[in-house]
Design a protein around this nucleic acid. Sequence first.
DNA 1: TCTATTAGGTTTAACGTTTAAGTAATTTCA
DNA 2: TGAAATTACTTAAACGTTAAACCTAATAGA
Lengths: 354, 354
Amino acid sequence: MSRTTLRDIAEKVGVSVTAVSRALSGYPDISEETRNRIFRTAEELNYQPNIAARTLVTQKSGVLGLFVLGREKGEGFSHPFSGQVINGFLDGLVEEEYDMMVFKANRPPDSGSLSYIDLCKRRMVEGAFLMGLRTDDPWIADLKESTIPIVTIDMPLAGEMTFSVGCDNVSAVHAAVRHLAELGHTRIAIVNGYKQASVSRERFEGFKSALDDLGLPFDPSLVAEADFTVAGGKQAFLSMIDRVSDMTAVFAASDLMALGVLEGARERGLNVPKDLSVVGFDNIEMARMSSPPLTTLDQPRYELGQTAAKILISACNGETPPSRVLLKANLIVRGSTAEQSKGKPAKGVVRQAH
Amino acid sequence: MSRTTLRDIAEKVGVSVTAVSRALSGYPDISEETRNRIFRTAEELNYQPNIAARTLVTQKSGVLGLFVLGREKGEGFSHPFSGQVINGFLDGLVEEEYDMMVFKANRPPDSGSLSYIDLCKRRMVEGAFLMGLRTDDPWIADLKESTIPIVTIDMPLAGEMTFSVGCDNVSAVHAAVRHLAELGHTRIAIVNGYKQASVSRERFEGFKSALDDLGLPFDPSLVAEADFTVAGGKQAFLSMIDRVSDMTAVFAASDLMALGVLEGARERGLNVPKDLSVVGFDNIEMARMSSPPLTTLDQPRYELGQTAAKILISACNGETPPSRVLLKANLIVRGSTAEQSKGKPAKGVVRQAH
DNA sequence: TCTATTAGGTTTAACGTTTAAGTAATTTCA
DNA sequence: TGAAATTACTTAAACGTTAAACCTAATAGA
């Protein structure tokens, strides 16, 4: 009734356990004939190796860990960004001898709960994949000293065994701002994400350098900060538009925040894109379906995940992959951006709405 | 340099390995004093048990498997439904001694690739969680004869060790149709999902029985079928509205399809909800943000996942949980449904659009 | 013909844990 | 006071693999 083991096969074929092990592992020192008999009975008894036993002796588990960060219960996997990245990561594991284990991140560091490193140790996890933007996670500091490779999305950790993949945020935002400038906009605002995310710094840098390159002045009152969510984006936009009403375009550092800007604009009676152009970042599914559909920067999420898998596996195998890989985010122009209407200052429109 | 083991602790404290094991496991036959010394040195050496070794001897891995079905690469984790369910499932594992391993489903059943059962066997997976609607997955048939418990979302399998959680689709759709009827609609169409999904059968049953109960006639030409996607929903709606133009309301069996209906309606010049009321199913994030925001049936995704975890764990522990659990899906009324405008037949509007 | 090599295995040990079966010293209680 | 029970351990075995070391018979090379 219990599972078949190497021993069962060995007894049935009439050889030693080692012979069976070596035959199944493809070592050449087993004769053609015995090998065949071994394979046949293995098939017959539907043998599946016990990976726990193998792990114990080889000290390699074939397990990669996935940690999904985020502060709220709901945030982790349900973020519109995560799914495709994970799909890509998993597909990057196909053909490889690795499986993926998901760990509950976000657990408070109270007594009793384990650090990410400790969780990995127990299961002999060979490498970890970290998603989520919070650089202030209490367990993250440890990771820099990890002895197993760790790859993150959008969160460079500067450790010996840490790697990161992400998009070239600077040049992506640069393209977005250039797009707006080419449409005639000069008063361009930014709704950025929170500072704890390294992408926020990069996107801001892209924003400023683009203004510089395009010869546009930088106005600090056109900078707002939010938490990457719809509600946050809306709030940030509203308090900004109420202070300075002559802006004609907004770059939001995430599509969710851009959708919030859209909501806010509607509330203030501003027509997008006639009165206000809006550009997002991410190209989540929703971006296609908003009205107007969102002009945004497409993050190649699937490829990000796939690249992460490749890097992690290569690092697990003792190779030394690049510590940072940047993919290109492409501008997708949709309906939320348009030429700035020359004669009519947006100011007037806003007043009208009040 | 290598990891600390029970042996290291035993040597340092001066007792046997067994004593250390029993002390750490909380057995009462170790004296208070030795126990304390053991705990202290365990802490000191930062001991983490080797779960592979434990698994080998106890024959319990503490691993639950997650299989995400779907036909396309992109479908699995990125479906707007999956994220919250997985979050709920993971949170259902907190406080339990289980971890979750994700397996690549969707692999072709060619020679060389393993069945779900075999994948579980190798890793000594104790129970599996299956998501995704395809009852025609080539490996699913095997699952009915599984000896480890399997819990599915929305896919009853009728096996000895299979369990399923889902929503009470029949009564949910019933509520949706009643809502439309109360708004004065009598020509109500349904855009259902594909037949391979058991939810499609149930939702259709709810649809028909509601018409019955409300004294409305059932018209087969008001029934269309699609693949749960936006594009599919739009296509199905368009070909239906072009055949029979006097419908005033549509129930779509998923929000994605409902969004497709919205697109289709816009294309035909129909105003939602003035000319056409639309109800979806799922309450995905996008549903709040479409214009108009979608009236829909809220599936408690997080709770579905949590319930699945509870059932699976209880089955793993030898208990006998109910083989089917149905949660309630609540109607969320938003802007996509309205009173049917009496005098003006929708027909006229459609003509006008052409 | 004798030694060295090779082919095709076998034996033994090890991985780190748990559990069953002892055992020696102390305590209980009749 | 002496047998029985209890306390606080230890020893030995097992889980299912892999890997290193060893063995034997046949073959090759000189």
